[in-house]
């Protein structure tokens, strides 16, 4: 009899390289960042070795910074919900379509992903800004000189347009996994379309809603180019603020603290929501 290779060893061999990459590219920089966030900032020498919580304290005690965190969170939540509400019908139609135009539809959803978020934000500036399309229409109707730029509306719209394809694609693949016969069964048992949606489609799509929601939420929390270009100087979100502390103010310790706060907030909310989904879905 040949000796069987212990399963544990095979697994280690297979997982090993990936683990190393993750360790080197993720954990090490994070550890470094965590260390930086404990350092002290000095106007002339920039970063001073220390072990102090003052960067974190500064963030949580200053209403300006907590306000920025709150704005970021609000924009992320609102855009995530909008992505869901707008994306679900499209995803459902695509998933259930048997037409030969289906692949064209999927392509149309994917196409925007080929264009970077910076370019897209510039596009929105052309639509929403002074002298842009909206302004031109407004002018033709008798008004003059409006700009929708530099507003939370513009930022939300920009983020929504970037995140929507991710949501649609995630939901589509999950809905395709739901047996169409199960929906017909609901039909034959007397469930009208809204009740079928509520009692069958929604619960079965919940894992997809969770995944898509988390994906889009994380993207929104970390959005950089869109709030930077469409939000203007007064509208602050976490990622642009972090960059400014880091590159303009050269305050690495504080930037590191902001990075950690952003990351922890996102992680906590993500974990909480996926727990919630799992609890509703544990039966499955």
């Amino acid at each position: 009899m040949t000796k069987r290779r212990p399963e544990g060893l095979t697994a280690t061999l297979l997982i090993g390289p990936a683990t190393m990459v993750v360790l080197l590219s993720l954990v090490l920089p994070l550890a470094l960042l965590a260390r930086y966030s404990m350092n002290r900032y000095d106007r002339r020498t920039f970063m001073v070795e220390a072990f102090t919580p003052e960067n974190y304290l500064r963030f949580v005690t200053d209403p300006f910074y907590t306000g920025v965190l709150w704005t970021t969170f609000s924009i992320a939540i609102v855009t995530t919900l909008l992505c869901l509400i707008l994306g679900f019908p499209v995803a459902y139609k695509l998933a259930r379509s048997q037409s030969r135009w289906k692949s064209i539809g999927v392509l149309l959803v994917i196409l925007p992903l080929f264009i970077g978020s910076t370019v897209r934000a510039l596009g929105w500036m052309g639509v929403l800004g002074r002298g842009g399309i909206v302004d031109a229409i407004y002018g033709a109707l008798g008004g003059s000189g409006i700009s929708l730029l530099n507003s939370s509306f513009a930022v939300a719209l920009g983020i929504l347009s970037i995140n929507l394809p991710y949501m649609i694609l995630t939901l589509q693949s999950v809905i395709e996994g739901i047996d169409a016969r199960v929906e017909e069964a609901a039909d034959s048992l007397g469930a009208s379309p809204p009740r079928r949606f509520w009692h069958v489609v929604l619960p079965l799509a919940l894992p997809g809603i969770g995944t898509g929601g988390i994906l889009v939420f994380i993207l929104a929390m970390n959005a950089y180019a869109t709030p930077f270009l469409l939000g203007g100087a007064r509208f602050q979100m976490m990622a642009p603020m972090l960059y400014r502390e880091f590159a303009v103010n050269n305050n690495w310790p504080f930037a590191a603290a902001i990075a950690f706060i952003l990351m922890l907030t996102t992680l906590t909310l993500t974990a909480a929501s996926s727990l919630l989904v799992q609890r509703r879905y544990r039966a499955h």
Partner: peptide, 9 residues
């Protein structure tokens, strides 16, 4: 249904 199509949830 041939595949039964029970509600899995």
């Amino acid at each position: 249904f041939q595949s039964y199509a029970l509600f899995p949830h």
